[in-house]
């Protein structure tokens, strides 16, 4: 999967808050069309890392390179989906998807056309004129994903997008995400603390240590592509999940002790 130069390179990235280090010297790459997951215990700095890459949180040291060029505060080719629910309650599903294009000054027809394509892709047909409070949690996340995808980002950062969903919806949406990625060849950097999800979706999993967040290990997920959620029942899947958990267990315990104090 690693073809050519990486789209995103993170080098020696660190984040210091006034009284502690949140991210300590983190580095990794993401190549075109790749799906990379970052997994780590709660509070290890996953969101901070992602938002630093997107230029929303200033970095203390280190570099973020997009297609080999260092960027200071984000880049137009980066899209981000946040951990918290973030679709605008004052806009319909369709209007939410049009938002970015509207801000760029796209004509009404053009943005409507692109948003409708996105409705199709995301399987949101029939819900385009609903307001968020009339949508289920899973539908809302689809809208959030669509709102980012309409902008055609070269790399999409997703911060636990399915974190608030029930297990079944989560698995189904994961499968949808894989289908979409297959269709449009989207490059994705995905944050989660769900091991099954990381293995189900990724080409590679980056495992982070408990606070301060460092890269502890990187595991290649050599499951066949294209995948469906049926992959969960394979033996190889179980082995990979075990491998990731082995790496994570110690960190999770450490993090648990940190917070228990």
């Amino acid at each position: 999967m690693k073809n050519g130069a990486p789209i995103l390179e993170v080098r020696n990235l660190s984040k210091e808050y006034s009284d502690f280090t949140a991210i300590d010297n983190v580095g990794f790459e993401v190549y075109r069309h790749e799906f990379v997951s970052i997994i780590g215990p709660s509070g290890c700095g996953k969101s901070t890392l992602l938002e630093m890459i997107a230029g929303l949180v200033p970095k203390s040291s280190g570099e973020v390179l997009i297609k080999g060029v260092a960027v200071k505060d984000g880049h137009a080719s980066i899209g981000i989906i946040f951990q918290q629910e973030s679709i605008f309650p004052w806009r319909t599903a369709l209007e939410n998807m049009e938002f970015g294009l509207q801000m760029q000054g796209a004509s009404k027809d053009e943005r409507r056309k692109k948003a409708l394509e996105m409705i199709e892709l995301m399987g949101l047909g029939g819900f385009e004129n609903r307001y968020p409070d009339q949508l289920s949690g899973g539908m809302k996340q689809r809208v959030a994903i669509a709102r980012a995808l309409v902008m055609e980002p070269e790399i999409l950062l997703m911060d636990e997008p399915f974190g608030a969903l029930d297990e079944q919806t989560r698995i189904i949406l994961g499968e949808e995400l894989l289908r979409i990625r297959q269709e449009i060849g989207q490059t994705i950097l995905f944050v989660t603390h769900n091991i099954n999800e990381a293995v189900q979706l990724s080409d590679r999993v980056v495992i982070m240590s408990a606070r301060p967040g460092k890269v502890k290990a990187v595991i290649d997920i050599d499951l066949e592509r294209p995948r469906t959620s049926a992959v969960i029942s394979t033996e190889k899947f179980g082995r990979l999940v075990g491998e990731v958990w082995l790496q994570l267990r110690e960190e999770a315990l450490k993090s648990f002790r940190q917070t228990a104090r």
Partner: peptide
């Protein structure tokens, strides 16, 4: 206003004026 809405705007690299007009005020309406 929920700061996450403003973050969406910053994440899309909008101008401050756009964030105020299209996010801040609708959210506070």
């Amino acid at each position: 206003v929920n700061p996450i809405y403003l973050k969406v705007g910053t994440g899309m690299r909008l101008k401050e004026r756009q964030i105020v007009r299209h996010i801040l005020f609708p959210a506070a309406a």
